[in-house]
Design a protein around this nucleic acid. Structure first.
Length: 423
DNA sequence: TCTGGGGTCCTAGGACCC
DNA sequence: TCTGGGGTCCTAGGACCC
């Protein structure tokens, strides 16, 4: 059996940890740029505000209903996530951290009779030690555990833990689950399946396997197997080696000038390389992409990108920035109103296994660049430094493309300056 | 006026190999 | 008239996840 531990309304719950006065109050959390609703407390779900709704469209409803609105605070959510995950690891080492708010546990070592009570304890401990509420679903495959977790959330009589261990329970849960809510069935397949009269997970599970394989490829076939109780996915306790690293932003206003784009791209290049260095990795290629308004059919044709290989794999901000700016010049089209831009790093490898460049002109110079980078990182991470105190000159501190983030809560757990005070 | 960011996997088609 | 068989690698696009 597998368990899925799923935090309830995770970001909204995080906002309540240091604001107990918000317990029972309606809360939403907005995406970067305060663009969309990406988390809702139960009270807001009850108001009928959909997931992903553009803020400007639901602003009036939220305000008249007295909903508390937060910009996203990833420093807080990331840290709270780590605390929840640590508690789960204390129950079993066979854990896969699937996302910021979800983890699978391989229960093969657990005695079947004790699973429910142990999961109840886990749930209670997480609540007690972090104040984050979770739901736990248990099933013979990961996909069924996902469905069980949804049932645990929706059916209040289950008190947060749902185990699907018998055919009758599984069938009943499948019949209550819309096919589009199944893990692996997204928007596109949901539409096509519905058009063919398949509306619940049970309808889908009852299709002929050859038909599913033919129409939906191997991914669809795996989902079908998992719904029918055959394991297609295991618990991956080793995190995958990362294959790419992206830093990107939508602009609050469109940007057409190459100089402004340069500042943005230099910032993204720095962010992405910084993240890579933290994971002791280096990149082989740098891609810059420029996107026009994605809600305008005609504008999408103006999207462009360019990829350039680094001379030798690197995560050095200066190197990556230089490369990214060159790629920008290639991708840039004059006169286009860009809405979003970003830098992706590909061909990643670990720093340790680095192959030196056979044609390197000056290994000594590369060494010095490396040491400089270490010194800069050290300065910037010192407790007294403001964010990015030392940075590449191509960036600028204040620009009009920067993010809107007007309603962010304090970084209670990761910044000394923003520590909660009891008075 | 306004619409997130960061990922992975699969497939089809083209170019290439012997 | 007729034109092999078996591969790999790369890329773009589409689908999915949170």
């Amino acid at each position: 059996m597998f368990a899925l531990v799923d935090c309830n309304n995770f970001y909204a719950s995080c906002e309540r940890v240091f604001r107990p006065d918000l317990e029972g109050e309606p809360i939403v959390v907005l995406s970067n740029n305060d663009g969309c609703v990406i988390a809702r407390s139960n009270e807001v779900k009850a108001l009928g505000v959909p997931m992903g709704a553009p803020y400007f469209k639901v602003r009036d409803v939220l305000e008249t209903s007295g909903v508390k609105i937060f910009s996203s605070n990833y420093a807080l959510y990331g840290d709270m996530s780590g605390r929840v995950m640590n508690i789960i690891f204390s129950f079993s080492p066979e854990v896969e951290i699937y996302s910021i708010d979800e983890a699978f546990i391989d229960l093969s070592g657990f005695s079947p009779d004790l699973i429910i009570s142990q999961m109840n304890t886990l749930r209670a401990n997480i609540k007690k030690w972090t104040s984050i509420p979770v739901s736990i679903g248990i099933g013979p495959t990961k996909t069924l555990a996902k469905i069980a977790a949804e049932r645990a959330k929706k059916d209040l009589s289950l008190v947060g833990v749902c185990m699907l261990d018998e055919a009758s329970k599984i069938n009943s849960a499948l019949s209550l689950t819309p096919v589009g809510d199944v893990w692996g069935i997204g928007r596109a397949w949901n539409k096509r399946l519905n058009a063919n009269g398949i509306s619940t997970a049970l309808d889908f599970a009852n299709q002929r396997t050859e038909l599913v394989r033919k129409k939906m490829g191997v991914t669809g076939a795996r989902t079908w197997l998992e719904l029918n109780g055959t394991k297609a996915y295991g618990v991956e306790t080793q995190p995958d080696i990362r294959k790419s690293c992206v830093s990107s932003r939508s602009f609050s206003k469109t940007v057409s000038s190459i100089d402004e784009l340069k500042e943005a791209i230099a910032t993204f290049a720095a962010r992405a390389s910084e993240r890579l260095r933290a994971e002791k990795m280096v990149a082989g290629t740098v891609t810059v992409f420029l996107l026009a308004n994605r809600f305008d059919e005609n504008a999408i044709a103006q999207n462009s990108s360019a990829t350039i290989a680094l001379d030798s794999p690197s995560a050095n901000t200066a190197e990556v920035t230089k490369c990214a700016l060159a790629a920008l010049t290639r991708a840039y089209k004059k006169g286009v109103a860009y809405k979003k831009a970003g830098v992706s790093l590909f061909d990643l490898s670990s720093m340790g296994s680095l192959q030196p460049n056979l044609f390197s002109i000056s290994p000594d110079r590369e060494n010095r660049a490396h040491n400089l980078q270490i010194a800069i990182d050290k300065i910037n991470s010192s407790p007294r430094a403001v964010r990015d105190m030392v940075h590449v000159g191509a960036r600028r501190q204040k620009s009009n493309w920067h993010m809107r983030q007007d309603m962010r809560s304090p970084r209670y757990t990761t910044s000394w300056r923003e520590l909660a005070c009891v008075t």
